[in-house]
């Protein structure tokens, strides 16, 4: 059991999009907690609702077309759903910050990097321009940008992709957040730069102690970073476990399949990587059966009849599955 204070408590979060083709059920009732200082990895295939769930929490989805519902979204004990727009703006960008997938497009091309880092400092901490400039330079230094002071007046196009993402990290760290959400921040970077960024954020987190949610579809990255991992599928959380437990003792068939598809060092060359057959289900209907059932090697008739809920199967280990994959029988 984690004794640290729960800082984010998401209870039964739903997110839907009303589109011309119908209602897209992007997030279908997810529940999980994040503790102070914890690093939580969220993994899952493209389109499984990782970004949408985080954008819902940050209240960054355009409504319409989006519609968000939850039992509660508690941030430091307060329900964000009851916050006014102004109160929400105070949380966003200061206590709870987010960095995004594509560093090439996430910074404004016509404003200097310095201006963009100073913005939250002035807005949330009420700093003067002078103070903000000083702090912005410190922040750039913190994210390992050489000659930080001189780079403040640069425009984003004068930064490399890796540097831009580090500038994004600097913006997100500006006000010492309680929670930093990183939405696939390394996907668009090449491998060495990816590793650098992961190390950088790890180091900063150790120093500043904020909680970190790291979204990725790369289980390898998560392994080196997260304490706990949530696996999502088609808008559901299907497994939630401590990192060692998840890698050593995966209990959901989808997690098992994901792990099998990871390349391993001890793998022989002629051995092909396992892939997961089939495609994720259409999100246009809310599934009544288990959404993974059509692709599942353990599927039983019951899996077609009803959708399993997320249940504790051990201390700090939850899954949403009817089957015990060790025996292949219903639990």
């Amino acid at each position: 059991m984690d004794n640290r204070e729960v800082i984010l408590d998401i209870q039964d979060l739903h997110a839907r999009f009303h589109t011309q083709d119908g209602v897209v059920h992007a997030v279908n009732g997810i529940t999980y907690q994040v503790h102070a200082g914890e690093t939580l990895g969220i993994v899952g295939e493209s389109g499984c609702g990782k970004s949408v769930s985080m954008l819902s929490v940050m209240d960054l989805l355009a409504k319409p077309p989006a519609e968000v519902q939850a039992e509660a979204i508690l941030f430091k004990g307060e329900d964000l759903q009851h916050f006014s727009q102004a109160e929400m703006r105070k949380v966003r960008g200061s206590n709870m910050t987010m960095i995004f997938q594509d560093p090439m497009t996430s910074l404004n091309p016509v404003l200097t990097v310095g201006f963009q880092i100073k913005e939250p400092l002035k807005l949330h901490l009420g700093m003067s321009d002078e103070e903000a400039t000083k702090r912005a330079a410190e922040l750039l230094e913190l994210v390992n940008i050489p000659e930080a002071e001189n780079r403040l007046s640069d425009f984003p196009h004068q930064f490399s992709g890796g540097m831009r993402q580090r500038a994004m990290v600097a913006i997100a760290l500006a006000c010492n957040p309680t929670l930093l959400i990183a939405d696939e921040p390394t996907t668009a970077l090449d491998v060495t730069i990816q590793a650098q960024l992961v190390e950088l954020v790890k180091g900063i987190q150790a120093k500043l102690g904020m909680a970190l949610i790291w979204i990725t579809h790369d289980l390898g990255v998560v392994a080196g970073l997260a304490e706990r991992v949530i696996v999502m599928y088609a808008g559901f959380v299907v497994e939630d476990a401590q990192i060692d437990e998840l890698y050593g003792n995966p209990l959901h068939p989808y997690t098992l399949a994901l792990l099998k598809s990871l390349p391993r060092l001890d793998q022989r060359k002629e051995e092909a990587l396992a892939t997961i057959e089939g495609l994720p289900p259409s999100l246009l209907e809310r599934p009544q059966s288990c959404p993974f059932e059509p692709r599942c090697e353990f599927a039983k008739p019951k899996c077609k009849e009803s959708n399993p809920l997320l249940e504790a199967v051990g201390p700090d280990h939850k899954i949403a599955c009817w089957v015990d994959i060790k025996t292949g029988e219903l639990r």
Partner: peptide
Amino acid sequence: GEDYIRTARAKGLR
């Protein structure tokens, strides 16, 4: 619709 507008909103700007 650009990403940097989402970044600006994520900063808590009005």
